[in-house]
Structure formats: structure tokens, C-alpha cells
Simulated assay, not measured.
Amino acid sequence: MSSEQSTVLIVDDERSIRLSLRTILSGLGFMIIEAARGEEALALIRTAQFDAVLLDINMPGMGGVEVCRMMRKNSARLPIIMLTVQGSEDRKVEALDAGADDYITKPFQLRELIARLRAAVRRNKISESGDKTILVGDVWLDPERHLVQKKGQAVHLTPKQFELLHFLMANAGRPVPHSKLLRSVWGPEYGNELEYLRTFIRQIRIRIEDDPANPKYLITESHIGYRFSEST
């Protein structure tokens, strides 16, 4: 996906971070717009079109989580990546529940941030194209025909295993909290059934991973949930 056509909104109260990101991302072909406060970012979202948002979680005035929640109300598909601090698992989950697509921990590695940003923009472009099938590495899933293949060979899943895999693959590259997975696939009454979820994850890993003990697709996000990796 060419970054030349991609416009990114950077929202951070620290001018040095905005300047650093602008310099690097502009050099890669992204068009950059900046906002120092959440209120300013929301005003920009209402008047301009963006391909992705990099949003700091801790800002004076309106915090990043609330900004994310309001952005998500206005745009269901806008990719939002939160910039978080080390060790703030509860805040990360809160951001994901508010509608963030992903998060990057400060101090972040630039290569990781660029990869996450490009993946978010690419996912958004693909979703706009209307193609329902999903291909990640050697795993292919057709949601309409309920088919899964690994290296061209059929993978047999129960209906719930398929639904869980579909949800994770549809959000490939994004960390999905335990509670969101449980409620989305099984219903609101299953929000705390973590061992139930782990059992299904183990079963799916046996069927799609070359080495289930060292998965390359279904990655555990410690204390948060799971991510279906795009980097395979």
C-alpha cells in the first residue's frame, strides 16, 4: 500500500514527539497533520479526511481514551493507534474497548510504529474494497462459505472455533482484549470466562499452527488478550 496517498493525524501534547514523527513519516511519503489537544483533533476529524490517527493516551484536557471514543462514534472504520506508556495494561485495554485499533508503547521503536501504521492503513483500504475473504500468511478464510485452508489444505473447525478465528483474522494485526473476544463470539454473559477462551485458542492453534507451542499466527498479548499476527 503506497503511503503517498495516506494522510495521518498525529495527536500529542508533546511538541518534540509530533516533530519527530512528522519528520520521519513525511520522509516515507505520508501527509501529516498535527493536533496538540484532543479538542483540536476532534475538530479536524469533522472537517477533513484521514487514513489513520496516532493518538496519545495521556493529554491535558480531554484524554486520549475519550477522544478515541468520540472519534469512533463519528467514523467506524478510521484506524486509530494509541500511543501508551510502559506497563499501563489497564489503560491499553480501556483504549481498545473505546475503539482503538492498536497501541504502541512509549518509548516506541520506529520500525514497529511504521509497520503498525502501514498495516492499519492497508486494512482500511482492503475493507473498503469489499473483499470478504481473508488471507494472512498461509491461512485463508472465507466467511460466507465457512471455509478455512492452511497451505491449500482444508482445516476443519467447529462453528464456534470458526467464529472465533474469523473475528481474530478480521482484526488481524490488532490486539483484541479477552472480554471483547468472549462477548463478541459467545455473548455478554461470557465476559469473564478466560479459561473457556484459552481452551478454544489452544484448539485453533493445533489446527493452524506448524508448532502450536510456539505460535506465529495466534499471538498472546500478555494481560490483554490475543492478536492474529500479520507478520508471518
Rank of each mutant, 00 (worst) to 15 (best):
R15Q: 12
V93Q: 10
K132V: 11
S129T: 11
N214Y: 06
Q86R: 15
R116W: 09
K125R: 15
G225M: 03
I126K: 12
A76Y: 01
E163W: 01
Q153E: 15
E89F: 10
N171H: 15
N214A: 13
I206N: 13
P79Q: 07
L110Y: 12
R72H: 03
L117V: 06
R77P: 00
I126E: 13
R46F: 01
P177C: 05
Q153F: 00
E221K: 08
A120Q: 03
V148H: 06
I114T: 14
L96Y: 10
I126Y: 11
G191Q: 14
E144W: 03
G87L: 07
G191D: 13
R111V: 08
K180P: 00
D13P: 09
L19A: 13
A36E: 15
F162P: 05
K106S: 04
S2L: 05
S129D: 12
G87T: 06
F50I: 08
S3G: 00
D138L: 02
D97F: 09
A52K: 06
A52H: 08
Q109W: 00
Q149Y: 12
S222L: 08
N74C: 03
T158Q: 11
S75V: 01
P215A: 05
S3L: 15
N124K: 14
I57A: 13
G64D: 09
L141Y: 04
R46K: 15
L194C: 01
L19D: 14
R123P: 03
V176A: 04
I57M: 14
E89Y: 12
S26Q: 15
A48L: 13
M169L: 10
L42Y: 03
T133S: 14
E163K: 14
K151P: 00
E230H: 03
R122K: 15
V176G: 03
I17S: 11
K180L: 13
L218P: 06
P188Y: 03
E4W: 04
L54F: 09
I219P: 02
E14T: 11
N124A: 13
F30T: 05
F30H: 14
E40L: 01
V176E: 09
A36F: 00
S184P: 02
D13W: 10
P60D: 06
Q109L: 10
Q149V: 04
Q153Y: 01
N58L: 12
V148M: 07
E40P: 05
L9D: 09
H146G: 00
L117W: 07
M71L: 03
G187A: 07
R118Y: 01
E40G: 01
R174K: 15
L157A: 10
H223W: 05
G29I: 04
I104H: 09
H223D: 07
L157C: 08
Q49D: 11
L110I: 15
M82R: 12
L117P: 11
A154Q: 10
W140H: 12
V93N: 04
L28S: 07
D210K: 11
L9S: 09
G152R: 11
Y196Q: 10
T105Q: 08
L165E: 05
H146I: 02
D211T: 10
L117N: 09
I45N: 05
D51R: 02
A76S: 14
